[in-house]
Design a protein around this nucleic acid. Structure first.
Length: 564
RNA sequence: CGGAGCGUAGCUCAGGCGGUAGAGCACUGGCAUGGGGGGCCAGAGGUCGGCGGUUCAAGUCCGCUCGCUCCGACCA
């Protein structure tokens, strides 16, 4: 491709709204442009990258035996009503009405549609297993689209759905996808982790996320370097035993005056005790309106996902001042003793002795509290958020913490959708049974951003070879110099003839501008044709590497062969 | 959805004290040049987000509205 007839509108300055490297460089490099919040246009260069990512995903999905389909983006509301998600999915669902008043959703994901297809066309165990996938534009009316391609309202996703006759077979399908995902992300050249995850609103039995390690990522991950355990903090466990305080003789319960002192730090300081001996009492309101108290040691953070899962609700929130008042609970001095609502305790409170809690009375705390002498929680549950340094739940080595960008998520769904939508098959024994499902997503357009987040420098993008828009960039530094032009032209034709994807910068602009653009665009290999042609030499460079290498023009062919 | 900020040339931004709009870069033509966004000359480009109000006069003041961004909540 000749740069002079191509379309790469690079920018010297980043648009004011771009904050993160992938957003800045994809816009500056002429890969994408923004149309509206969360909506992006893929320009020729950007679309080349996107297609490369798609094709790598497609190749590995096909090899795994998955069957590519294309489902309508518009999905009738009736299907969403069947699974209850028309209401549950909430405002994130883009809803549209046709001229007859029938409601549709712009598909944010396609469990309903594919399950409908399968229930209408699969009747027997002989038709299973099957795994259908598609690569398609998805729509989610995000409350807050941000960071360019990382969180858009319209984005490209690969979504796959497996259908099996038994849980055992479904696990096999799930594991096959797990391996397939590894191959995909390996080939994309990304540094990623596969982590245990929470299933969230999609539901199901268990799930794993694939997370690209980037600074300031949205996903918080803990992982163990020793045994390989890794999990999203939403789902992460840790081995609490190692962090327990030593046993103590029980002292008599005492109420102490603590005027205006209510935060853990303040109470610990005021009473001169370790934060680990202060127990926080958090009042949560579940989505059915029930209030529960949850105790957790002062140095630990509560994990709302664990709480929501334990109580098997869709949502829960910390009680507001008004809600506390209605319950007759004294804000800032809440404690388990004499509380009228059910009290649950995090495992961090188990075997804790002579600790401090609020006295349910303004400006008072109890000290030397002991279980079960002074109160008895309904149950001890793991409610706390794992963090760096906590012992690994598998091997007890200290956990590490990192942030990342979720680029893939796989779920073993079980029968959630097949039962709701009556997707049954007739088994070998002649009985009708629900199909066991799994679903598997990859954020294709987000991967483009993830690759840039992970691979760039201050001058621009450094594309992994597998997804670079072109493999080779030829710069003719002075196109008016006929010798330079002839040599560059020759090399370009030769590369084209060898089937190498090459971008030839034949524009009549200054050398500096060409170098800057080349760095910004980030094509892996570069041949610079300049003054040295007079000595029969050109320069080779690899994007991201400092060194330049001068080689004889006659030797370029050998270099090109390596790029084929 | 709560909080905050910003909308002036293609991009980055100035002008804010009311008096008919500017810079740098980009763009067009010309000249000189050619190894890291370089120089000189000339030019084109704007209903100052929109609607309404105050005023002799509004980019500037007031009200409403739309859009974009950031923090948080939320998020397969």
């Amino acid at each position: 491709m000749r740069a002079s007839s191509y379309f790469i509108p690079t920018l010297k300055e980043a648009p004011a709204e771009a904050e993160v490297p992938s957003h800045i460089f994809l816009i500056r490099g002429g890969f994408i442009r923004q149309l509206a919040a969360g909506l992006y246009e893929y320009l020729p260069l950007g679309y080349r990258v996107l297609k490369k990512i798609e094709n790598i995903v497609r190749k590995h999905m096909d090899r795994a035996g998955a069957l590519e389909v294309l489902l309508p983006i518009l999905t009738p509301s009736e299907l969403w009503q069947e699974t209850g998600r028309w209401d549950v999915y909430g405002k994130e669902l883009f809803r549209v009405e046709d001229r007859k008043g029938r409601m549709f959703a712009l598909g944010p994901t396609h469990e309903e549609t594919i399950t409908d297809l399968v229930r209408k066309n699969i009747r027997s165990y002989k038709d299973l297993p099957k795994n259908f996938y598609q690569i398609q534009t998805k729509f989610r009316d995000e409350a807050r689209p941000r960071y360019g391609l990382i969180r858009g309202r319209e984005f490209i996703m690969k979504d796959a759905y497996s259908f099996d006759v038994s849980e055992e077979m479904a696990v096999k399908s799930y594991n096959l996808m797990k391996e397939t995902y590894r191959k995909i992300f390996d080939e994309l050249g990304l540094d990623y982790l596969m982590v245990e995850a929470d299933t969230g609103a999609i539901g199901g039995k268990y799930s794993h996320e694939f997370v690209v390690k980037v600074p300031n990522g949205e996903a918080h991950i803990v992982y163990c370097e020793k045994c390989g355990y890794a999990a999203n903090v939403e789902a992460a466990k840790y081995e609490f035993e190692l962090d327990k305080l030593p046993p103590e003789e029980e002292k008599p319960l005492e109420k102490v005056h603590t005027p205006g002192v209510s935060s853990v730090t303040d109470v610990a300081q005021f009473l001169g005790v370790d934060e680990k001996k202060i127990v926080k009492t958090l009042v949560y309101i579940l989505d059915d309106g029930t209030a529960v108290a949850v105790l957790i040691r002062g140095d630990r953070e509560l994990n709302e996902t664990k709480l929501i899962n334990y109580f098997n609700v869709l949502d829960a929130h910390l009680a507001s001042s008004e809600e506390l008042e209605k319950l007759n609970i004294v804000e800032g001095f809440v404690g388990p003793i004499g509380l009228d609502i059910p009290v649950y305790a995090d495992i961090s409170v188990k075997d804790l002795h002579n600790f401090v809690v609020g006295a349910n009375e303004k400006d008072y705390h109890y000290i030397n509290v002991n279980i079960p002498r002074d109160f008895k929680p309904v149950e001890f549950v793991d409610f706390s958020t794992a963090r760096e340094g906590d012992p690994c739940p598998v091997c007890k080595a200290p956990l590490k913490e990192t942030t990342g960008l979720e680029v893939g998520h796989i779920f073993l769904l079980g029968t959630k959708y097949s039962e709701a939508m009556k997707a049954y098959f007739v088994d070998r024994d002649g009985r009708e049974k629900p199909i066991i499902m799994g679903c598997y997503g990859i954020g294709v357009s987000r991967l483009m951003a993830a690759a840039v987040e992970q691979s760039h420098d201050e001058n621009g993008i450094i594309w992994p070879e597998s997804i670079a828009p072109f493999k080779l960039h030829i710069l003719a530094l002075n196109i008016k110099d006929s010798q330079i032009k002839d040599v560059a032209e020759q090399l370009y034709q030769k590369a084209l003839g060898m089937g190498i994807e090459v971008l030839y910068d034949d524009r009549d602009i200054s050398p500096g501008a060409k170098f800057k653009d080349a760095d910004l665009i980030g094509i892996p290999y570069r041949i610079v044709v300049g003054k040295k042609v007079k000595e029969g030499k050109v320069e080779l460079q690899k994007r991201g590497a400092e060194e330049k290498e001068e080689i004889k023009i006659t030797d370029v062919e050998g270099f090109l062969q390596k790029l084929q």
